[in-house]
């Protein structure tokens, strides 16, 4: 093992250990927040694989998040499946949708790719509204507390929910850390840096980009399904443009193309909104100003700046 990979193992397992410790150290209010943050960080990590590592900016990731969410929610509520099966249904739906979107949207590049993904997500949102009699449209629906049992564990309690979120986060976190150091991940970075050159080195860039969309979309869908299961609510808000923009902000703030960036970004943004909304009604204004300052003074995001200035080995 090289020194750098030893450092990065320490960093990843250290982060997980810290999250375990925080459960015992933090007051209940923050523990509740952190459960939510970890699930949203999974969403951000999925987005980061495509945006941060492959260099493809999708403005339609809410489609994948919502697909997982509705896949699980409707499997449970409409078809009465147990949560374990419903989770699989949610993820399979996300795999199918991201494959279809990948095949279609990757015919375009750059701004066109952004617009095409945005339009597909908008179509997804309108579909949810159109089939309101099944999806309950804007209003959404609740997954009953009695049904939210996963592998025999009641996941509605604060403790079990926290650790369910932590397990999910850890699996995806370590998977991404492994992936981006693997030949596959290195090729994604090569595509991000110079696609034409990568193709002319003999890499099948089309296949790599499609796989990146599918993995990214599936992880986002997994996050959506987990969110529905852990917090018991499925609604069309999660399919709106806003939920496509959030992961972009998180990842930009935390550091695109870093393994830790998504988590840092979600924590930062979550508490930024939380704290500023305590101060004033115009909390989005404060949040906006801080975002502008960060982009001006830390253009590579928090983890990105740390990598640039201190720890060059940061994965």
């Amino acid at each position: 093992m090289t020194k750098n990979s030893l450092y990065s193992h320490c960093l990843h397992f250290g982060t997980i250990a810290l999250l375990v410790a925080l459960f015992f150290l933090l007051p209940a209010y923050h523990v509740g927040n952190l459960s939510r943050i970890m699930v949203l960080a999974v969403y951000a990590m999925g987005f980061n694989l495509l945006f941060g590592y492959t260099g493809l900016l999708s403005l339609g990731h809410a489609l994948f998040f919502a697909t997982g969410m509705y896949g699980l929610g409707m499997a449970m509520n409409t078809f009465g499946l147990p949560s374990e099966l419903a989770l699989i249904v949610g993820v399979v739906c996300a795999i199918l949708v991201s494959t279809a979107i990948g095949l279609l949207a990757l015919r375009t590049t750059g701004v066109a790719f952004m617009i095409v993904t945005l339009m597909f997500a908008q179509a997804g949102y309108l579909t949810v509204l159109y089939f309101g009699s099944y999806t309950r449209g804007d209003e959404g629906f609740v997954i009953q507390q009695a049904e939210r049992i996963f592998a025999g564990v009641d996941i509605t309690g604060e403790t079990s929910r926290y650790f369910a979120a932590l397990i999910l986060f850890s699996i995806v976190f370590l998977l991404i850390a492994y992936l981006v150091r693997s030949p596959f991940g290195r090729t994604l970075v090569a595509i991000r840096e110079n696609e034409e050159r990568t193709k002319m080195l003999g890499y099948d860039t089309v296949r790599h980009k499609l796989l990146a969309v599918i993995i990214s979309g599936s992880i986002s869908g997994l996050a959506g399904a987990a969110y529905a299961l852990l917090f018991g609510y499925v609604g069309a808000t999660f399919a709106t443009v806003q939920y496509s923009i959030f992961p972009l902000l998180w990842v930009l703030l935390g550091g695109a193309g870093t393994t830790l960036g998504p988590l840092i970004g979600v924590v930062f943004m979550f508490y930024l909104i939380d704290l500023s909304s305590e101060l004033t009604q115009a909390y989005m204004l404060i949040a906006g100003v801080v975002l502008v300052l960060l982009t001006l003074f830390a253009p590579q995001g928090l983890a990105g700046e740390i990598r640039r200035k201190v720890f060059k080995w940061l994965p």
């Binding site: 290195r186 970075v189 090569a190 840096e193 110079n194 050159r197 990568t198 002319m200």
Partner: peptide, 16 residues
């Protein structure tokens, strides 16, 4: 010239 301008020389040749 079409190299990976944002990566180190070693990473450049390693990708290849």
């Amino acid at each position: 010239t079409s190299v990976y301008a944002g990566l180190t020389l070693l990473e450049n040749t390693a990708i290849s």
